[in-house]
Computed example of a mutant assay.
Amino acid sequence: MRAESSGLTADEVLKWARRMRDQDDEAGTAVREKQPRDDRCIKVYRINSRTVRLNGLFAPEHGE
């Protein structure tokens, strides 16, 4: 930040810091939104010839 902010006014540094925060948040938001989709799964077990067991994990929007 030192090299990037040299010669900038306090207002310009504040704007720069906000842009950096917003960019970091965008990356974090994308990861948080992707994680539930990556974690989803469904497993089917046949316990005996007539009984089937399902076990699943769904993203919140698909579980409702």
Rank of each mutant, 00 (worst) to 15 (best):
E33K: 15
F58Y: 09
L14F: 08
D39G: 09
R46V: 05
V52K: 03
E64W: 05
Q35M: 09
R50P: 00
G28W: 06
P60K: 12
D24N: 14
L54R: 06
V44H: 02
M20H: 05
E64I: 10
R18V: 08
I47W: 03
R21S: 09
R32D: 11
D22T: 07
D24P: 00
E26D: 15
D25R: 15
E33A: 08
N55S: 15
R19C: 06
K43P: 02
D11F: 03
R53E: 03
A30Y: 03
N55R: 15
A27D: 11
V31H: 11
L54G: 02
W16R: 10
Q23H: 09
E4M: 04
Q23G: 06
D25P: 00
A27V: 08
A10F: 01
S6D: 05
R37H: 11
L14Y: 07
D39A: 15
T9L: 00
R19V: 12
N55W: 09
P36V: 04
E33L: 11
D38T: 07
E12T: 02
L54Y: 04
R2D: 06
T29G: 13
D38K: 07
D11A: 13
P60Q: 09
R40L: 03
R46C: 04
P36L: 02
D22R: 08
R18M: 07
D25W: 14
D24C: 10
W16M: 10
R37Q: 11
W16C: 01
K15H: 05
S6W: 01
R46Q: 09
R40M: 15
A10C: 05
S49G: 06
E61K: 08
E12C: 01
Y45S: 07
N48K: 08
A59F: 02
R40S: 12
R21V: 00
E12F: 01
A10K: 05
Y45K: 14
R50L: 10
D24L: 14
S49D: 14
G63D: 12
T51H: 11
L8A: 01
G28P: 01
R53M: 06
V44N: 01
T9R: 04
I47H: 04
E26T: 03
F58R: 08
Q35E: 11
W16L: 11
G63A: 11
I42G: 12
K34I: 05
G63L: 12
P60L: 13
P36F: 01
E33N: 15
R46A: 02
K34E: 14
A3I: 01
T51N: 12
N48F: 04
M20E: 09
E33V: 02
G28S: 07
A30N: 05
T9P: 00
L57A: 14
R50F: 08
L14E: 14
K34V: 01
Q23W: 06
R32V: 07
E64A: 07
S5E: 09
R21E: 06
H62L: 13
A17G: 03
D39K: 14
R40N: 04
S49E: 13
P60S: 14
C41T: 13
R19P: 00
V13Q: 04
D38G: 10
A3P: 00
L14D: 13
E64S: 07
